[in-house]
Design a protein around this nucleic acid. Structure first.
Lengths: 213, 213
DNA sequence: TGCTGTGAAACCGTTCACAGCT
DNA sequence: AGCTGTGAACGGTTTCACAGCA
């Protein structure tokens, strides 16, 4: 038994696969499956068994030789590894279509996350609430409010020219990770994880593939 | 002069970088910059000059030795390579928060794309319109309507249990590429490019990184 | 026997460094 | 001289294949 496997790497791709794996394991758990081998997992969800084992091995020894993985245990270990065993407070800047969509999304209010506030500059929106009753606050109060709310993660759903300033405001409010959906690159901010994620890139990716067929 | 460089690979990562590069080049063009070298591009936008050259070389010879790249030409060549020199018709299934957000988004109605229809199963929504006047149609008509509209790309913004059926309906309607935002994996469909893109994976990725600091 | 965990091999993408064109 | 385009070196990730444990 090794002492908690090395976590030197943990690449982007690995992270994505862990999320996918967690989803698969949740599905199995909901279906009442108790135990599953890496190859059964792979076959059932179109993955690669060796890769599953390698990914998991990176964080310790999760399985039982000759048997496979215990579904409920695997699920809770995965949540732990991914930091989903606690609830992180999320705030969203930009109460437009996208911002409200995310605020009300089951995915963003499920296990591991709660959306605690929306921020906007539009006086007509401030003081209102999203469908799931998230309060819309004045964006000028971001640093103070984020701090007070205890926000750890911020999401940018603002127009491109407002993104960088909003990111900095969030950082001042103690937010430690930012997911930016605005179509500009928010440059690195010290002590903050910034993930730029322009949705139109996915559409362009499809267009690119369609163009060469 | 080589005859249009080999396109054997064109990986996911390359595609994403091309989108990013196009955005950078647009910025330069808007700023009136006429000519730029790969190293200047790299420095200005935090990229890697060798990688820019490699990425571009994959699709032909774009630059001028001793000078760099002509901004407007690079921009149009990139659009061409990515299939953005024509407008593709996009339809969105699911007229909930996210579907409407995407339908109205500048990004999804910019160069290269037009959102031509929304589909939903909710009778109260059918016949209505999004803020930017995209008509909401009955989801049961997807195969017929998508065909008639000439949709090439479909976006799934539906609940998880509706995603696979919606994808199949789109495929029957002649849609050749599908972007799935629902938190389930839509399995491969023959002759259709399927891109599964659960937004909560990005949040989980941040949580994962926060968990190990 | 059956499956995990893991070194070793194969593969792929990135970075380097320079030949060659302008 | 300056910068592109590219073969070669490098580093990282994926796949293979098996030793070792239940």
């Amino acid at each position: 038994m090794s002492e908690k496997g090395r976590i030197e790497s943990a690449s982007e791709a690995t992270t994505l696969r862990l999320s996918l794996l967690l989803r698969c394991v949740r599905t199995l758990d909901a279906a009442g499956v108790r135990t599953i081998s890496s190859s059964a997992l792979a076959e059932r969800f179109g993955l690669n068994s060796a890769q599953i084992r390698k990914d998991l091995a990176m964080f310790g020894e999760f399985g039982v030789r000759g048997v496979g993985y215990h579904v409920t245990e695997l699920m809770s270990r995965l949540k732990e590894v991914m930091g989903l065993d606690r609830t992180r407070v999320v705030v969203i800047v930009g109460a437009g279509n996208l911002g409200q969509a995310l605020a009300d999304s089951r995915n963003f209010n499920g296990e591991g996350f709660t959306v605690a506030a929306l921020f906007d500059v539009d006086g007509r929106k401030i003081g209102g609430r999203s469908r799931t009753v998230v309060l819309i606050r004045d964006a000028s109060g971001i640093p103070v409010d984020a701090q007070q709310i205890g926000a750890e993660i911020g999401i940018l759903a603002v127009p491109p020219d407002a993104a960088v300033a909003a990111a900095e405001a969030l950082a001042r409010g103690g937010v430690r990770a930012i997911l930016n959906f605005a179509p500009v690159t928010v440059p690195p901010i010290s002590d903050v994880i910034v993930k730029n994620m322009d949705l139109s890139f996915f559409l362009e990716g499809l267009s690119f593939q369609l163009a060469r067929m």
